[in-house]
């Protein structure tokens, strides 16, 4: 959860910054696409770097699995 949440925040912030400051396209790339890449990288890194939270994700998922709810 923490991983995808951080990724999402970074992605949205990056999109807003690049587009609102008229930097789209940025270096020939679509600004939203660059933000998406950053978003994925941050999501993956944060998920990997927070092992305790990763445990929580597994728990969260089992709690939300249809059989248990």
């Amino acid at each position: 959860m923490v991983g995808v949440f951080s990724g999402l925040i970074v992605g949205v912030a990056c999109t807003a910054f690049l587009i609102l400051s008229n930097r789209d396209p940025y270096g020939g790339w679509n600004a939203g696409f660059l933000a998406l890449c950053l978003n994925s990288v941050v999501a993956a890194l944060v998920s990997l770097l927070s092992p305790i939270k990763a445990g929580v994700i597994a728990e969260d998922l089992s709690a939300s699995a249809p059989g248990n709810s």
Binding site: G3, V4, F5, G7, L8, G11, V12, T15, A16, I19, D24, N30, A31, G32, F33, A35, L36, N39, S40, A43
Partner: peptide, 17 residues
């Protein structure tokens, strides 16, 4: 439209995950 797409596509990593 491209502005909107740039924003909502940020959901896609979380959705695929």
């Amino acid at each position: 439209l491209l502005l909107g797409y740039a924003g909502v596509t940020q959901f896609s990593p979380a959705s695929s995950w």
